[in-house]
Design a protein around this nucleic acid. Sequence first.
DNA 1: GAACAACCTCTTTTT
DNA 2: GAGGTTGTTC
Length: 741
Amino acid sequence: MHDNFSKLNSEQKNAVTCTDGPVMIIAGPGSGKTRVITERIAYLIQLGIPAQNILALTFTNKAAKEMKSRIHRITENANAFSIWMGTFHSIFSKILRKEAHRIKYTQYFTIYDNDDSVKIIRRIIKDLNLDKDIYNAKSVFARISFMKNNLIDSQKYNNENELIKQDLINKREEFKTIYEKYCNECHKSNAMDFDDLLIKTHELFKQNKNILEHYQSIFKYILIDEYQDTNKAQDTIIKQIGRQHQNVCIVGDDSQSIYSFRGANINNMLNFKMFYTNVKEFKLEQNYRSTKNIVNAANSLIAKNKNKIEKTIFTENKNGTKIKILKYINDREEGDQISDIISKNIVKNNTKPSKYAVLYRTNSQSKVIEDGLRKRGINYKIFGGLSFYQRKEIKDVMAYLKLIVNNNDNESLIRIINYPTRGIGPTTLDRIRKISEQEGQSIWKTLNSPLIEDINVQKKTRSRLTDFVHMMNQLLQLTDNNVFEIIEELIALTEIIHKLKEDPTDENINRVNNIGELVNSMKMFSERKNNNTLLDFINEVSLDETKDNEKTSEDYVSLMTIHQSKGLEFPHVYIVGLETGLFPSQKSIQEPKLVEEERRLFYVAITRAINEVVISHATNRFRFGTITQSEKSFFIDEINPLFIEELTYNRGTDFLHNKKQEWKKRKTPPQLKNRNLRKITTGMSHIMNLNINQKIIHNIFGEGTIKKIDNSNGNQKITVLFVKNGEKVLLTKFAKFKIIS
DNA sequence: GAACAACCTCTTTTT
DNA sequence: GAGGTTGTTC
Ligand SMILES: Nc1ncnc2c1ncn2[C@@H]1O[C@H](COP(=O)(O)OP(=O)(O)OP(=O)(O)O)[C@@H](O)[C@H]1O
């Protein structure tokens, strides 16, 4: 009855057609999990299930986009487009806008990004006169975020003895106060951070039975991709909705769990069977994506992880070529040469740029690749990173726009009250904030009221304040105009561009251009038929959902972090920067658990490839304004040497025309095998002469006392209680520390 | 009190 | 390489 079924194997078919009741698919990369989800959606619609009753969730916007286009490919049914599909955050934000009044927000609430959140927390810490080194704003925020994602609010925190103990050890007695103040500040500003989008949804459903029932009756069929990366908040909301109809289909792979830093927990997936009744479980073992060599290499890598569900992953695809390991003298050379190889292969094999992807651990690595590709005139697109909308000048303009929609947004007001500079400095601002705090109202309310007369400032400053209020009031009138008119008026009234042009440094010219681009995109936005209000615009920007300019060509080399590449596939994959300290990250190296997660990340990277994987590393890298030396990542040596070949590059020769001579095989695989095995064993038997209660000083965690020493399997682990950072498990092989007693 | 320049600090990964 | 913080000048 359905053409595409011919393209499914029998297990996949079963998973697709088993539409009633809870279904769980745990399977390896490239085994068709996403395909099963998309086919299932098409199948449900074909069965006559109204599209509005289907909820399909993903973690990233890119995954959502990918799934939409896959559905587009397999069904002509126009209905398919009215399913609820998107990231958790975007779907929940829609629900929250609609129901905001029930949880004491208005539908115009602002969404704060991480920078906004950290700034607010920094301000709170300063207001409380706390030590900014002990209360590092970023780590306090990370901790708040972690708790929110685990549904621990500031009240529940009181019962979390373990967490309280950690904070005491870290000398952060006031953590709870900050947490409370932060939540208050957001609420008073009618603003939610990313995590609030989850926990407020949870709260909404918990407190309003009828609302929950309403959404249960809408979302009769729920499908979620990459379930291994759900956190507690997300898992709980799905349970709230899903328990009614039990038609929940989850798909995931524990070996691809790479988001534990934002609270993801694979136990959510593993416990699925306990919450729902009669869970049907499907296993997909055949990889349809990659060559045998790639599958084998990936298998040999992930075998090094102790923590995993055993799975067999095999493929019937052709053998393919070995993974190439390339070594360069520095990062510039790496970027340049990788670009060169891609550029030449595009010509040589007559392939499209879109068949190539360059993947990396950190966003900052994109720079050198970008330069190389641009130099050669190759189309490329960088995903993520410091996006356009995170640039200072754009955030400044956006802050005005957010204020127009939600004038209680303190954070945005503080951002722009003196931008462009208009003589309202920190002291004045502090006074206004104090009064607002006393009155229990937003800063704007204070400014826009007779209270402005009570602020203890000089005449001059007061008139600056009233000028500002006057200007803002003019802007606020524009709320319902079209977004293009708003931005034009905003630029005219604030003189932002005018002031930047007065001092035409390169940087400022760039800023003017960027603002120009923002104006352009708002112009395009304003020409939409619907969903074209300022609130819509801000919402899309905040959730990073901005539709790409249709104008840009589709044919480009993709540059992205491995995190973003999850769920995607490319014929040719280049993984750059495989250096210990970068990948795995310096911050992970010390804790075995984190190393395992990084290893999974590498696993994800390799398994994105259809035909070819090329891995590179550089001996010198420009980081932190200085050149740092780095060694080849030990992850490379964990791949069975049978599946890789290491090559070293001779500068100044031409790769394309005379491959054999340019790329000299540095080691033949058998030699390599022995060499590496020896290396790993010597590396492992790294046992230092240490004693319990010895004091050490660590390069990152500072002073601490050794509490436990574990010499089993030659890989010495020590448990250290740090004065400032609490207890950590370190591998002495990697940890940088000195013994001080 | 505000503005600007000079220093310091920190960069994992995402919504 | 961009934020915040500190120091100096107006
Ligand atoms: N039965 C099949 N026959 C042929 N090709 C298939 C089959 N099932 C899936 N594929 C193809 O295999 C590739 C991988 O599928 P898909 O992306 O759904 O896998 P996945 O399990 O979601 O992978 P990952 O977990 O790595 O994201 C896709 O190109 C898909 O079209």
